[in-house]
Nucleic acid binder design. Sequence first.
DNA 1: GTCCAGGATCGGA
DNA 2: TCCGATCATGGA
Length: 271
Amino acid sequence: MKQQSPYEFVRPARYDINKVFDCGQCFRFEKITGDAFEGVAFGKLITVSQTDEAITVSGFENADDAVRFLGLDIDYTDIEKDLSSRFPDCPAMIEALSVSEGVAILRQDPWETLVSFIISQNNNIPRIKGLIKALSEKAGDIIDENHYAFPTPEQTAACGVTELSAMKFGYRAPYIARAAEAVALGKANLEAARDLPTDELLEFLMNFHGVGPKVASCIALFSYSRYESFPVDVWIRRALKEFFPGYYPVDFGPYGGIAQQYLFYMQTHRK
DNA sequence: GTCCAGGATCGGA
DNA sequence: TCCGATCATGGA
């Protein structure tokens, strides 16, 4: 007998949806009550709520999809142990592990993540959210009066540079248009890329015009679960310089991307 | 008016 | 290979 939506799961240790959806990895989820978020993922309206004991999810067609998207299968206790052991006496790491406890990495759709982080370059989070919302409402399928699916590559390609520019994408408009065309025509296969080792995945992603090392790393981390992938943006650059002088992303190990996300959360929620 | 934001591209040294 | 200028846009 198949369990019906909503699905309820045991809340994993060190998992807090308030931080999962507010750590800069996704742009389409909003808080609806104290411990519940709502947003669109994989073309469906998703709601996620939590208590001390449980995570409750509605909107997915089966429980596995919910587990996969939310990353409920990942044990952050072990990960934090690894990170802690690499920097045992580092105050910044201790603080990051503390203030960012609850942050977990989602598994988002590669196409949506690709476009979202092309938009993110040299931009701020409120504006990124606004642009993604505008694009979805313009080109995505309607779910209900207030929610739209993220546009498919084909729908995005149909917009064209002119329409994207009119939506205020600025110099990123041709980046998005070209990526949409490449994926829609099958010249780039984001699903097949799941099988690539991380270095080749990053190389593949950087073939998109407008995707450099940082954006590629974000896609690898937030969409392809490459936890060693360590995006370096202005916030992380400052954190490395101030707290980890002499250290490089590779020094953070196989869970460096998660350390990076803790540092990003710490830096962007400071003061 | 200036500076900044989850950067990347381009041309010139 | 490396470095600086430049790229739209809007909020602080």
